[in-house]
Design a protein around this nucleic acid. Structure first.
Lengths: 244, 244
DNA sequence: GTTCATTTGTACGTATGTATA
DNA sequence: GTATACATACGTACAAATGAA
């Protein structure tokens, strides 16, 4: 059950990501060839290609046979792409990031809160803080968890738990989350978050709100994320599954 | 310029696809193991895995270390998870709204366009305009369709067609869209759009970009939407209908 | 226009790690 | 604990597209 090291190809991908972000590989230029990367990272070509595959999926680079792999201009310079298709992806996302708690408190249900949560309820345990992608300096988001009072005990364990909090709640309560509803909207980053996120004033941001419900429609948890625009982008795929 | 034979792994993927469709591998059952598939198709494991990777990306199967590769339900109940959104949802969106064309023109692939589309390609037919929710005054979005030159004829018919344009392209070309990739990011509304959308200056906006691909990965169309923050929000649900 | 070196794509083989049953 | 099955990772070779000589 121990934390094993990340796979090699992910480490290579992460290194390349940061090199691209830092401008070491400027937009429009070619990455080193695969063979060159093999030498630099001392890994096989298979591993390099697996890493490049990730970068391609995230829209950071584009490869072309015969010519090379070019660093693609990302719209809005979003360096982090959140691929979301299934609830499992929520877990992998949590696993890839780190949550630094800034406050844990009971939130009384005032007007503003009701408006935010779209949910008129007694009281919630609010766990708020910043989420970081591993080894990156700038926070990915300001995140507020609102945990239903019946499961507030889970909130106290958050810091000791890797993975999504709703899994923790499931384990403690025995209830299962059967539906997650998500809304995404654009907002101007609130002034009090500008500093915490090291963003610029008036910066646009993605607000992602998710509610977690049991099959009996009880709302266990609501999560609100504020992502500065240049650091995050939400991606998903839809397929029409006809084999014909 | 002749059509060369498709790569082995794509042929394997196609074969598996049709076997799944025909019910030879019913939903919920396990596919043969990778080793078994190697023997049956007489290819290396590398090739089998590449094929399975395609099927996974298309949402046809899900693999799990130690247990196997299961055929996932295309639509309804899932043993684990399922897609929260189907491509039909895109249609209902189009049906509920109205598109006022402002310009139709060929767009040469300059730097800015490449940046926007993340896709370096010859030339696209751009159909741009405003989208309104029925009987509402303020536009819902500024929308730009980029239609691959091979299907540019569809663009001329846009005004006469109700429903999503990719359906029109499908009808005219006979090709089927099998995958739609969507990214959502926050931006500041571009100055030249402020007026068109009757929005306020510096207004945050949701940028929603979708690419439409055939099963052979050809990109038919790219759509970019700019939604002023206060007029649009993206919503979706995920449900896990797992027994136990 | 042709040739040629470069670079990614495809495909093979093999071995070991790790989660699952 | 053992066997199974996918994940990761090493190696090699050739094909196909590109771009420059």
């Amino acid at each position: 059950m121990q934390e094993t090291a990340e796979p090699l190809y992910k480490m290579v991908a992460q290194k390349l990501r940061s090199q691209i972000a830092s401008g070491e590989f400027p937009v429009g230029t070619l990455l080193p060839t695969e063979e060159r990367l093999c030498l630099e990272f001392k890994v096989s070509r298979h591993t390099v290609r697996e890493a490049l595959r990730m970068l391609r999926r995230d829209g950071l680079v584009a490869s072309k046979r015969g010519s090379g792999t070019v660093v693609v201009p990302s719209n809005g310079a979003a360096t982090d792409v959140h691929h979301m298709m299934t609830m499992n992806d929520l877990s992998t996302f949590s696993a890839d990031t780190q949550f630094d708690i800034e406050a844990i408190e009971m939130a009384v249900s005032d007007e503003q809160l009701t408006k935010l949560l779209g949910w008129s309820s007694e009281s919630w345990l609010r766990v708020s803080g910043r989420r970081f992608r591993r080894q990156e300096v700038l926070p990915l988001s300001w995140t507020e968890y609102y945990i239903h009072r019946d499961y507030a005990s889970a909130g106290r364990l958050v810091s000791k738990f890797a993975g999504p909090i709703f899994n923790l709640i499931e384990e403690l309560s025995g209830e299962r989350v059967s539906r997650v509803d998500q809304t995404i909207s654009a907002v101007t980053l609130a002034p009090n978050l500008v500093g915490k996120l090291e963003a610029s004033e008036g910066c646009p941001a993605l607000m992602v709100r998710r509610t977690y419900r049991t099959s009996s429609d009880k709302c266990l948890q609501i999560v609100v994320n504020y992502h500065p625009a240049d650091r995050f982008q939400h991606a998903m795929s839809m397929s029409s599954i006809s084999a014909a």
